[in-house]
Every structure is written in C-alpha cells, then in structure tokens.
C-alpha cells in the first residue's frame, strides 16, 4: 500500500515547493494531501490515512504548535509523525514542538537533500 504525506502551510506557493522538493529528493508518495492551517490539517487527518505530516509553524487560525498539541491529545492520530518545516527554528520553539511530539525540524530555506535526510528515517 502506497504512502501518503500531508503538507500543512498557509502559503500555496510553499506547499507547491515542498511537493516539488519531495519529488526532487526521490521520496515517492502515492498521495500528497494539503492543508492551509492546523484546523484543516486535523480535519484531513480525521478523514484520511496519513503516514507523515510536514507542517509549518507560523500559520493563521491554528498555528503549527497548536496543531501538534491538539493532535497529541487525539489517540487516533497522535502516533502519526510530524516534521516541522518553518522559518521558526529557534531552540525554544523547536523544543516546544518536540514536547508535543514533533520528530524533527527543517528550516526554510531548505534543499531536497535536507528533506531526504530528515524524512527518510521516518518512512
């Protein structure tokens, strides 16, 4: 059965760039799902089987940290690995993200190689 990734970013441009970088990194997904903020991401996770999530932090409505916290409190989706992909990679923020279960962080700007290094071990 193929794998599914969920890309969470309020920027449509960045969602396209992340999708392209996944292909350039040689990571093949059968399905790439998208969400524009944390609330949309929770809804997507409730309705789909997702193998890994790539999430921005600085988003409207529900930001990446709030999304992680809400996800960690829902046993049905808590185990899905999340990697943060953001301009926000200060130690305090990343430690907070990891306390809510984030498995890693990728700083924007990023390269396909960096995505491969971070995401590969989770798949």
């Amino acid at each position: 059965m193929g794998k599914t990734v969920l890309i969470v970013d309020d920027s449509n441009t960045m969602r396209k760039i992340v999708s392209r970088s996944l292909r350039q990194a040689g990571i093949e997904f059968d399905e790439i799902l998208e969400a524009g903020d944390g609330q949309e991401a929770l809804a997507v996770l409730a309705d789909n089987s997702v193998d890994v999530v790539l999430s921005d932090i600085n988003m409207p409505n529900m930001n990446g940290l709030e999304f992680l916290k809400a996800k960690s409190e829902d046993d049905a989706i808590a185990g899905i690995p999340v990697v943060m992909i953001s301009t926000e990679t200060g130690a305090d923020i990343i430690n907070e993200a990891k306390s809510y279960g984030a498995k890693g962080a990728i700083k924007k700007p990023f390269t396909p190689d960096l995505i491969n290094e971070t995401l590969g071990p989770l798949l």
Binding site: S11, E88, T89, G90, D92, I93, I94, K107
Partner: peptide, 17 residues
C-alpha cells in the same frame, strides 16, 4: 519576506521565543 524575516529573527533572537 517570511523566509528573509525568519533569518533576520534567528540572528536577533537565536532561541526564538
């Protein structure tokens, strides 16, 4: 702007909070 601003923030505030 978000990415350049994020980089400037990292320089001004390395811990990020």
């Amino acid at each position: 702007a978000n990415m350049i601003g994020g980089s400037i923030k990292s320089a001004l505030d390395p811990k990020g909070s």
